[in-house]
Simulated scan of single mutants.
Amino acid sequence: MTSTISGGCLCGGVRYTVNGPLRDVIACHCEQCRRTSGHFVAATACRRKYFSLEQQKSLRWFSAVPGFRRGFCNVCGSSLFFEEIGKERISIAAGSLDKPQGLHIAAHLFTSEAGDYYTIDPQTPASPVGEHHVVLPE
Results as ranks from 00 to 15, higher is better:
Gly67Ile: 08
Leu53Glu: 06
Gly12Trp: 12
Ile92Cys: 13
Val75Asp: 05
Pro128Lys: 05
Gly77Ile: 04
Thr44Glu: 09
Phe82Gly: 05
Arg60Ser: 12
Tyr117Asn: 15
Leu136Arg: 11
Ser3Leu: 07
Glu113Cys: 08
Gly20Lys: 04
Phe62Trp: 15
Ile85Glu: 14
Thr44Cys: 06
Ile90Ala: 08
Ala114Gly: 08
Gln101Tyr: 03
Ala114Arg: 15
Pro122Tyr: 01
Arg15Glu: 08
Val41His: 05
Glu54Met: 13
Ser91Leu: 06
Gly102His: 09
Asn19Gln: 14
Val25Phe: 02
Gly7Leu: 10
Ile5Tyr: 13
Glu83Thr: 07
Ser3Trp: 02
Phe110Met: 07
Glu113Phe: 02
Gln55Thr: 14
Ser91Pro: 00
Arg60His: 09
Ser58Gly: 01
Gly12Pro: 11
Leu103Val: 10
Val75Ala: 08
Arg89Glu: 05
Ala43Tyr: 10
Leu59Cys: 10
Glu84Thr: 03
Arg35Trp: 07
Phe72Leu: 12
Asp121Ala: 14
Gly77Phe: 09
Gln56Val: 00
Gly8Val: 01
Phe81Ala: 02
Thr36Phe: 12
Pro125Ile: 02
Leu53Ile: 05
Gly95Ala: 14
Gly130Asn: 15
Val41Tyr: 05
Met1Trp: 10
Ala94Ile: 08
Thr36Gly: 03
Gln32His: 15
Gly77His: 12
Trp61Cys: 00
Phe51Leu: 04
Pro66Gly: 08
Arg23Met: 13
Ala45Asn: 03
Glu88Val: 12
Thr124Lys: 14
Ala64Pro: 05
Lys49Tyr: 00
Gly20Phe: 06
Glu54Trp: 01
Ala107Asn: 12
Arg47Ile: 00
Asn19Trp: 03
Leu97Gly: 07
Arg60Gly: 02
Phe82Tyr: 15
Ser58Glu: 03
Arg35Glu: 08
Ile120Pro: 07
Gly67Lys: 12
Gly130Leu: 10
Gly115Leu: 11
Arg60Asn: 05
Cys11Trp: 07
Ala45Glu: 02
Leu10Thr: 08
Ser6Ala: 15
Tyr16Leu: 00
Gly67His: 13
Arg48Trp: 10
Trp61Leu: 06
